[in-house]
């Protein structure tokens, strides 16, 4: 053993002590509370998505003639195809849900405040990338709803002043949904967005490591001899547990509520009821409340405000004494989001 060890150390001269230190950063005690692990959950799900996504890409054929057929083959013919596809679908759902929960946790605990403003912005970018990946991924199934959802989405983009038409043409590869569109979606979904997200994640985690996690003191932890515990193996084991629970939940969801398939996309017939994926319900409903450019601009403005929120929040906190204002704004925003989502889910049009 030691001979092999020596051989290996010569070939790969990583200073063991530094490595240990690097991976073994003390983790603050508050992370023993489960809801502080919500950042690790999307990371784990991201990994699941990559694995199942690669598996699915083995059989998927982008292209209007074949896309739906190949998804049907995956679902009906390939061994465990329905399972891998369902895990991918549910993985996406859970990932988006956990990203949102993570963001809410960060927001309400004020963890985005100085000096971590930049990491909030990186997180916002990751959120946008996640949503875009969900959007493009759903479109790849090329069923009636996903086709029309994509068409509507692209046309909404058209309403953006000055650059809208350009963006839409870039996304669709033409004025309207055409034979190039699916390959663009596929490249975005399977290559561009994941790589961008991976890079953003590296930045995200590096920034966390550089700043350290925002620490919180809980009364129950007050009498602990130490303010921290070990990342390895202690926190690692927690993450492993979360991972396994997620796998069990995913398997169960995939089996009990497997991903279904609607009829193949028909560019000539618009279905009577068009719904995007659930995570776009809020936007979809918002856009219905206003018209055209106003809707798009207001959406863009909200995203912009969210993006810059740490600075806005800092500005407000400096101006006023109401340090709890951000919490109230947050509660209002969450209620609005839930309200719009439920509204969209409850009505047909």
């Amino acid at each position: 053993m030691s001979a092999i060890g020596t051989w290996w150390k010569e070939r790969c001269p990583v200073p063991a002590g530094q490595l240990k230190e690097l991976t073994n950063e003390p983790v603050p005690n508050h992370l023993r509370h489960w809801w502080f692990c919500l950042g690790g959950t999307p990371a784990y799900l991201f990994f699941v998505q990559i694995v199942t996504g690669i598996l699915l890409a083995v059989y998927y054929r982008p292209g209007q003639a074949e896309a739906w057929q190949s998804v049907r083959e995956i679902t009906d013919e390939v061994a465990f195809g329905w399972f891998i596809r369902s895990v991918h679908k549910w993985g996406a759902t859970l990932m988006i849900a956990s990203v949102i929960l993570h963001q809410m946790r960060i927001y309400f605990t004020g963890a985005y405040r100085a000096p971590r403003e930049l990491n909030w912005m990186v997180g916002m970018l990751i959120l946008i990338c996640t949503l875009m990946t969900g959007f493009t991924g759903y479109s790849l199934v090329y069923e009636q709803l996903s086709y029309w959802g994509a068409t509507v989405g692209a046309n909404i983009m058209d309403n953006v002043p000055f650059v809208g038409a350009f963006m839409k043409n870039m996304l669709l590869g033409g004025e309207a949904y055409n034979s190039h569109t699916l390959s663009r979606f596929f490249i975005l979904h399977a290559a561009v967005l994941p790589v961008v997200m991976l890079l953003l994640l590296v930045v995200h985690i590096t920034l966390i490591r550089l700043h350290g996690v925002t620490e919180f003191q809980f009364p129950s932890d007050a009498n602990k001899p130490s303010k921290t515990f070990n990342f390895f193996p202690d926190h690692m084991l927690t993450e492993l547990m979360i991972g396994l629970v997620l796998m069990i939940v995913l398997s169960a969801l995939a089996t009990i509520l497997p991903a279904t398939m609607g009829p193949q996309a028909d560019p000539l017939t618009t279905p009577e009821i068009i719904k995007p994926e659930w995570f776009f319900y809020v936007v979809f409903r918002w856009l219905k409340l206003f018209s055209g450019t106003a809707a798009v601009l207001s959406t863009g403005f909200i995203v912009f405000v969210m993006f810059l929120w740490p600075f806005i929040d800092g500005w407000i906190r400096r101006r006023t004494k109401a340090s709890e204002l951000s919490v109230w704004i947050g509660i209002l925003a969450v209620l609005a989001i839930i309200g719009l989502t439920v509204w969209e889910a409850a009505v047909a049009h």
Binding site: V51, L55, V58, V78, A79, F80, G81, F83, I84, L244, M247
Partner: peptide, 14 residues
């Protein structure tokens, strides 16, 4: 757990 999942993935690919 993960071994069985790998097996499922293998069956999917084969």
């Amino acid at each position: 757990g993960y071994g069985t999942f790998a097996h499922v993935a293998g069956r999917f690919l084969y």
